[in-house]
């Protein structure tokens, strides 16, 4: 009994190494006649190993796909109500020249600046480098990012120093009845 099975395993190994030799060695019960690809008979061991691998992959996929979908954030999670087109930030008197204010514009952080020369500008406050929230720095008269020291021009939002690769996204700022109103540019 034992001897018999040992030789079979040996033969199987041989046949999997040299598929072309397998035909001459072929034994009725160690191969199924599965010459699907025209590459000679497939050893039972090879078939089983392939099948096991395939099943394992399928099973893994079947398990992982629902888990992935479960964890994946949904687009609908985005709060529609937080979409804003225009917003009253504060009275002009509350924002003296040479200062800035961070505020919430819908779902994005935003920044409005009253420059020392009296202009009012607004930007999305998301640093174009790695997305930190920027602030106005009076001492530099510039928009500044605390995370890696990126700087932007306070009038145009253009990136002028540090790592940021692009200018800040602009918003429209106007004064209506003594109040600062910011809207999508």
């Amino acid at each position: 009994m034992e001897d018999n099975s040992a030789t079979k395993i040996e033969e199987e190994d041989k046949s999997s190494q040299k598929p072309e030799a397998s035909e001459s060695h072929a034994e009725a019960d160690s191969h199924w006649d599965l010459d699907i690809l025209g590459e000679g008979q497939v050893g039972r061991g090879t078939l089983m190993r392939t099948a096991m691998g395939g099943i394992a992959l399928l099973w893994g996929g079947m398990t992982l796909y629902p888990i992935y979908s479960y964890l994946k954030p949904k687009a609908s999670d985005k709060d529609e109500q937080t979409k804003v087109t225009s917003l009253e930030v504060c009275k002009v008197d509350e924002l003296p020249k040479g200062s800035g204010r961070n505020f919430r514009f819908g779902s994005t952080p935003a920044l409005v600046i009253h420059t020392p020369d009296g202009e009012i500008h607004a930007f999305k406050a998301i640093c174009t480098h790695l997305g930190c929230t920027v602030q106005y720095r009076n001492d530099k008269d510039a928009i500044w990012c605390a995370c890696h020291g990126g700087q932007y021009d306070s009038h145009s939002g253009k990136n002028v120093a540090g790592p940021p690769p692009k200018p800040l996204a602009p918003l429209k700022a106007e004064v209506v009845n003594g109040k600062i109103v910011v809207s999508q540019a």
């Binding site: 505020f103 952080p109 406050a125 929230t133 995370c147």
Partner: peptide, 10 residues
């Protein structure tokens, strides 16, 4: 504060 500026010296 998700809408505040990044703190200085972070």
């Amino acid at each position: 504060d998700p809408f505040g500026a990044a703190p200085i010296g972070i």
